[in-house]
């Protein structure tokens, strides 16, 4: 990997308001061009906050962002005005969980995609329309010509998500952020969207950060998985390693709690307790209160994220230590 496309260095995000919360704590992520990173975590783990911070979507008045964020050589935190507008949509764009909410209900799908293209490229209306139609065909919307003039509510959930992807890719971004894009969809539609994302990524060579709570969905699309817990990355590695030999007890717990054929009739190996309150994080490892391996040290000191090659781990008592060859 030469210069990475995305580089987050010690990124911390705090929210102020009626309650203060540390949503991200010193997160480091590097992502090469054409790489797909699965960001795995449960509610409150900071996975969506990471995406929103990358797009600078948080209200500035109530948010404090520390650290550095470099995307395609640009210092994202320093972007202002037009440069920020070009960055959003041009360099980085996002696919949301609820495509129904991300589209404006009073314009047709085609109008909105055309609009997005014209906002970023100096092209006339007609060629922008042609490009937009081409995008709809590329995301495999059947009868794209007819759907071009459809309003968002006239499309089914799966079609809307395809249109959302078309909108996100219309300006040929280098980085696509996907925030649980398949969670709200039915099983038979979910797999179609996962396959589509994988195919489009291969065709365009863009980088993707795919946020999900579902390991299986991440396995279908990602090259690498970063596991987040309470605003920190606790483990990172190639998909195969994460799924087969998880090092962090939390990752192992998540995998063990995934129900399937094997554990029918037996009690599940559940991780006890619930995720911590981001307004009152424990002093040591955030997972310590729920961890069976936790020691005095875990409760006192935050384990640093150490990396070897493509793998990284933040744990005092890993199931398999990092040094062992993967």
């Amino acid at each position: 990997m030469s210069t990475p496309l995305v580089s987050l260095q010690d990124l911390s995000v705090q929210f102020f308001g009626s309650r203060n919360a540390c949503a991200l704590n010193a997160v480091n992520i590097e992502l090469g061009a054409g790489e797909v990173l699965g960001l795995l975590g449960e509610s409150g783990s900071g996975k969506s906050v990471t995406l929103r911070t990358l797009l600078r979507l948080h209200p500035e008045r109530t948010t404090r962002i520390q650290g550095r964020m470099l995307v395609d050589g640009q210092d994202v935190l320093a972007l202002r005005g037009r440069a920020l507008d070009f960055y959003r949509g041009g360099t980085v764009s996002m696919v949301f969980q609820e495509p129904g909410l991300a589209f404006d209900p009073v314009y047709t799908i085609g109008q909105q995609i055309t609009e997005a293209i014209r906002a970023h490229e100096a092209v006339d209306e007609a060629s922008a329309r042609a490009q937009a139609l081409q995008m709809l065909e590329r995301v495999q919307i059947p009868q794209a010509k007819r759907r071009f003039d459809a309003y968002p509510h006239e499309l089914s959930g799966g079609m809307r998500q395809r249109a959302m992807i078309a909108l996100a890719l219309a300006c040929k971004p280098k980085l696509l952020l996907a925030d649980e894009p398949t969670t709200a969809l039915d099983a038979t539609v979910q797999i179609q969207i996962l396959l589509l994302l994988r195919e489009l990524q291969r065709e365009t060579g863009m980088s993707v950060i795919f946020v999900t709570h579902d390991i299986a969905a991440a396995v279908e699309v990602a090259d690498r998985i970063a596991v987040m817990y309470a605003g920190r990355i606790i483990e990172q590695g190639p998909v195969g390693q994460i799924v087969r030999t998880p090092r962090h007890p939390y990752t192992a717990g998540l995998l063990a709690a995934t129900v399937g054929t094997e554990n029918r009739g037996q009690p599940l190996l559940a991780v006890p307790g619930s995720p911590p309150d981001l307004a009152a994080l424990p002093p040591g490892c955030s997972f310590a209160p729920r961890c069976v391996h936790a020691s005095e040290r875990c409760r006192r000191e935050v384990p640093p994220l150490q990396s070897v090659g493509t793998q990284a781990l933040a744990c005092w008592h890993p199931i398999t230590p990092l040094a062992e060859a993967a």
Binding site: P142, G157, Q192, L194, V219, E220, V239, G240, V243
Partner: peptide, 17 residues
């Protein structure tokens, strides 16, 4: 979705919603 990164789903069993 399959849980095996070496054996990913290749084709969707159904088209459409």
């Amino acid at each position: 979705p399959s849980m095996d990164p070496d054996n990913r789903t290749l084709a969707s069993p159904l088209a459409g919603d």
